[in-house]
Design a protein around this nucleic acid. Structure first.
Length: 613
RNA sequence: GGUUCCGUAGCUCAGUUGGAUAGAGCAACAGCCUUCUAAGCUGUGGGUCGCGCGUUCGAAUCGCGCCGGAAUCACCA
């Protein structure tokens, strides 16, 4: 079915040619939803035609209105306010369009779920994929609020691309090597007395994080002593001299030399951490198609750099260090290999990018990394380009802002970091209390089911709270206020969905099989109904826009609008008690499809849509 | 200092390729539960869209210049 917007567009082009003898293209045509204060459904902005119409805006609008009404039977009436031509579209049109759209969407959804297993099989051999990296944790500390924003964004963007039909690979790059994990290992050897997750009951990542903190505390003591006995010494020098730090450095060298004892401990502690991480990922509903470990990839970039050096694309300085000269691009020089020949962060990223590009024949390489690394990714792309890899343009940095607290930034030193597990726990507890306060507990006699619902609601609140904000902006997280389930929140949308499902249950309709009604027998639609239909019809374009701009926030705001619109409709429109069966069916269909859209939108944000709450 | 990002109601945030009187939620106040779920709905109050100039029929949106904030500019990752 050709949309009315498209028809109007084509007709306006013809009309302008006929009336004013001017050729225009479709970009000159601006159509928008008519504002509430005015009569009409769709508005054409005629200002662009005023020049060659040689008439006042309002007259131009009227003339165009006459023309459109004569050509298009869907247009039942029109009025002009200044340069705005408000067009009324027939109820029949909206109903037909709504029917087409929802039936198509429904059949697509059914076919997707039935072929889901075979789809993944073909995706594995698919020609090219969008590879999206997110999470990228260090193994010395548990996940915190910043990681949560990262994880949610990455997972959601991956799902949004999938929904547009792309093959997507979700990958994680774990930074499992380096001085930081050695610090935890050393502190554990010294002060741990054999403590394990099993015997202490501590989550593995928290246990390792605990020893990282102990290391820092002990180091601070040593540094203080050195500074007291050597007045005037700089703090950095003192740190380097501290025995504990020297020992950690030595451990790192042993690790790189493959010392068995060190490797054994390293493996053990990392295993603890991974167990902890996967528990947190699971609670968040986050998953990956592939996990990379830096310990396995950190040498890859070197060969690329050495080849670049041989080809004369890079420069070697007197001390033996290797650099990329980016001054032509307005940037500085960038170190790629230290004078001792070891690789740096950038070198590793060159390697992992190459690896990933080949492994998945990537169409896009997307990195979900905080905006403090904007410069890094700018340089990464330029260095790759300089080295002659034309796929460098496939790299996209999904840069997001920091999560700040009312007291300011999170600082691990000041203990203001919001731990991911604690936060999830606290929100689940609040969901439980709120549910009980509202007297909804009787809905769920089954305790296990109730706990699952509390978790679903808590995650809905957390995920929506974070994803509704434009990724590029810094955001404020107020722990007290964020655990709110009223208003523009995830639970509000979940609740609206649950009510719709309840409505369908009570009407004894199958929630997923399309409800049919007879368009001819329906009276004129109310303004609320048209508005809701129009809103639902924008779903596809919202999805495209969200994918293109890497912004789940667009989806979040859209489903909130939809839920709110539905509530307005639902409040004073009888659905179950309507006397005319056909009208009842239509309203049920409208409710049902609203529910479907809400569910899909929630899914794209990683939020479950409960059947009842 | 260079580069990048941000600045919209008391607070948290929307605002589509430039369109009509800039919108939600929270907080405040006033109503609505014998009705399909009140985690809801309706209403009231609240704005120099950081400031100025420019482009345009029209600017929160585009350009330039200021002001304020953040990040970054490592032989850390």
């Amino acid at each position: 079915m050709i949309s009315i917007e498209k028809k109007i567009e084509d007709t306006v082009i013809k009309g302008v040619k006929e009336l004013y003898q001017v050729e225009i293209n479709s970009s000159a045509i601006q159509l928008q939803k008519t504002n509430k204060e005015f009569e009409g459904d769709v508005t054409l902005v005629v200002f662009p035609f005023v020049k060659f119409a040689r008439k006042a805006p309002a007259q131009t609008a009227l003339q165009m209105g006459e023309y459109l009404k004569a050509k298009l039977p869907e247009i039942t009436a029109f009025n002009a306010v200044n340069g705005f031509l408000n067009l009324q579209i027939s109820s029949t049109y909206w109903l037909e369009r709504f029917n087409d759209f929802r039936l198509e969407a429904q059949s697509k959804e059914n076919s997707v779920s039935s072929t889901a297993s075979s789809a993944t099989a073909t995706a594995a051999t698919a020609a090219s994929a969008y590879v999206i990296e997110y999470s990228s944790p260090n193994t010395n500390k548990p996940l915190h609020l910043g990681h949560i924003r990262n994880n949610l964004l990455g997972w959601s963007v991956a799902e949004i691309w999938k929904a547009t039909g792309k093959s997507v690979k979700k990958v994680n790059l774990v930074n499992d090597r380096g001085i930081h994990i050695c610090k935890s290992m050393l502190a554990w050897l010294r002060y741990g007395q054999g403590e394990t997750p099993q015997c202490s009951g501590l989550k593995g990542d928290h246990l390792v994080g605990k020893y990282y903190v102990i290391f820092s505390q002990q180091l601070a003591k040593e540094v203080a002593e050195i500074m007291a006995s050597h007045p005037g010494i700089e703090k950095e020098v003192a740190e380097r001299q501290a025995p504990l730090m020297q020992e950690a450095q030595q451990m790192l060298r042993k690790w790189e030399d493959g010392d068995e004892q060190v490797l054994e401990l390293w493996k053990t502690m990392n295993t603890w951490v991974y167990a902890g991480f996967s528990e947190t990922y699971q609670k968040l509903g986050i998953d990956f198609d592939k996990i990379y470990y830096e310990s396995q990839t950190y040498l890859l970039g070197k060969s690329m750099v050495e080849k670049g050096l041989k080809d004369g694309l890079l420069i070697k300085k007197e001390d033996g260090s290797v650099w990329a000269d980016l001054r032509e691009d307005g940037l500085d020089e960038k170190l790629l290999l230290r004078k001792d020949g070891t690789s740096v962060y950038m070198t590793q990223d060159l390697g992992t990018a190459q690896l990933r590009y080949q492994e998945f024949n990537a169409e896009k390489l997307i990195y979900v990394v905080g905006n403090e690394q904007n410069y890094h990714f700018d340089v990464l792309k330029r260095v790759l380009k300089k080295l002659g890899y034309d796929w460098s343009s496939k790299i996209e940095h999904l840069s997001y802002g920091m999560v700040e607290l009312p007291e300011g930034k999170m600082k691990s030193r000041e203990g203001t970091v919001v731990d991911a597990d604690d936060l999830i726990e606290k929100m689940t507890q609040t969901a439980k209390e709120t549910t009980e306060e509202l007297g909804k507990a009787p809905l769920l006699e089954n305790k296990e089911e109730a706990n699952r619902l509390y978790h679903t609601i808590a995650m809905g609140a957390l995920k929506y709270f974070i994803l509704k904000v434009d990724p590029s902006k810094n955001m404020l997280f107020n722990p007290k206020e964020s655990i709110d389930f009223n208003g523009n929140t995830g639970p509000f949308i979940q609740y609206t969905h649950a009510r719709i499902r309840s409505l369908l249950r009570k009407s004894e309709k199958q929630p997923d099989s399309p409800i049919l009604f007879n368009i001819q027998d329906l009276p004129k639609l109310s303004a609320k109904e048209i508005s809701l239909i129009q809103n639902l019809l924008t779903y596809t374009s919202v999805l495209q826009q969200a994918a293109k701009t890497f912004s789940p926030a667009i989806i979040a705001n859209y489903i909130f609008d939809t839920a709110k619109e539905f509530n307005g409709f639902y409040q004073d429109t009888p659905v179950l008690k309507e006397e005319h069966e056909n009208t009842r069916l239509f309203r049920l269909a409208l409710s049902q499809f609203t529910g479907t859209i809400l569910k899909q939108g929630l899914h794209l944000l990683g939020i479950e849509a409960p059947e009842r709450m």
